[in-house]
């Protein structure tokens, strides 16, 4: 039922783990199914002085789709401007993993929510 790309990402997930001195952590859970995801961010600046995702790591308690989407998302956003990363949608993420079965589309929400929550946390911290 999963695409080859999804299975490949599940078997060899990228950017798994923690960032000890993370600038922000986005902790999200899916109340319906019980999946949990923590997204760790390290923010830096590019040559133009814009904020970019310097490093990202993720930890996932969830199914194949949750693990694959979180892995795919980290690869895509690494080095990306924050303003750009914020705009990523669940449809984008489902695309990164070669599509998801209908019942599994909600899993891609978790990855998007986790990233957005982490960015929000980062902005909140910065304001203080």
């Amino acid at each position: 039922m999963y695409s080859d790309k999804t299975m490949d990402l599940f078997r060899h997930p990228k950017n798994i783990g923690e960032i000890k001195d993370a600038d922000a952590i986005g902790k999200v859970g899916n109340k319906i199914c019980g999946d949990v995801m923590w997204v760790y961010l390290k923010i830096g600046k590019n040559k133009k002085g814009e904020e970019v995702i310097e490093d990202i790591k993720v930890k996932t308690f969830g199914c194949v789709a949750a693990i694959a989407t979180s892995s795919a998302l980290t690869e895509v956003v690494k080095g990306m401007r924050l303003s750009e990363a914020e705009k990523i949608t669940k449809q984008n993420v489902a695309g990164y993993v070669g599509g998801l079965p209908p019942a599994k589309v909600h899993c891609s929400v978790l990855a998007v929510d986790g990233l957005r929550k982490a960015i929000k946390e980062y902005k909140k911290k910065k304001r203080k």
Partner: peptide, 10 residues
């Protein structure tokens, strides 16, 4: 190893 719930995660 990849689960945030294990050993409390962070």
């Amino acid at each position: 190893e990849i689960s945030p719930m294990y050993k409390g995660g962070n």
